[in-house]
Computed example of a mutant assay.
Amino acid sequence: MPKQSAVYILASQRNGTLYVGVTSNLSKRIWEHRNDCVEGFTQRYGVHRLVHYEMHESMLAAVAREKQLKKWRREWKLSLIEAGNPDWQDLWEEIVS
């Protein structure tokens, strides 16, 4: 997947701990989370499963969306995930193939 601005949600498991992030290189960033290369929240809480992502035309748009999602109530984030990924499958293979 070529570099493009993206917002993503990682989860520890279905209905588990959530993490919302933004990046200009989705596959690289998710690989870093999955391999605990990033110290902090995702490493500490085992949040490695990519359950939602959105591609954006610009980093400015992606950052705005990330800020919006971070303000959302947990129930809204769960509904967003389940609307596009009802089984909470790890979407890693989708972005690297």
Rank of each mutant, 00 (worst) to 15 (best):
E93M: 10
V63Q: 14
V47S: 00
E54S: 13
K67V: 05
A62Q: 02
E93D: 15
Y19I: 07
I81Q: 02
Q43K: 14
P86F: 01
Q89H: 13
A61V: 02
D87I: 02
S58V: 02
H33E: 08
Q43M: 14
T23Y: 09
W88Y: 10
V63M: 10
Q68R: 08
I95P: 07
W76T: 14
S24T: 11
H56K: 11
W76C: 08
M59T: 10
N35P: 01
R34N: 12
E93S: 15
V51D: 08
F41G: 04
K70H: 11
L91A: 03
M59I: 09
R44E: 06
S79E: 10
E57R: 11
V22H: 00
I30G: 02
N35T: 14
I81C: 00
N85L: 04
L78R: 13
H52M: 07
E54I: 03
I30F: 03
T23A: 04
L91T: 07
D36V: 06
S79V: 11
L69E: 07
E82G: 05
W76I: 08
S27Q: 12
K67N: 15
H33G: 00
I95H: 04
N85A: 03
R44I: 08
R74G: 09
K70M: 15
G46E: 06
D87W: 07
S58I: 03
E94C: 10
S24C: 10
K67Y: 10
E94P: 01
G40W: 10
E82F: 03
W76D: 11
R34L: 01
A83P: 00
E57Q: 12
N25D: 15
K28T: 12
S79C: 13
E94G: 07
G84F: 04
L60T: 13
G84P: 03
V38K: 12
L78C: 01
E94Q: 15
K70Y: 06
H48D: 09
A62W: 02
R65W: 07
G40P: 05
L80D: 10
D87Y: 08
T23S: 12
L91G: 09
R74F: 05
S27L: 09
L80Q: 08
Q43Y: 08
H33A: 04
Y19H: 14
A83F: 09
A61W: 08
D90K: 05
W76E: 10
Y53E: 07
W92D: 03
T42A: 13
L60F: 11
E75A: 13
A61N: 12
E54K: 08
R29E: 05
M59V: 09
A83M: 13
R73M: 09
E54P: 00
Y53L: 03
V63T: 15
R74W: 13
L80W: 08
E93R: 14
H48E: 02
E66L: 05
L91M: 15
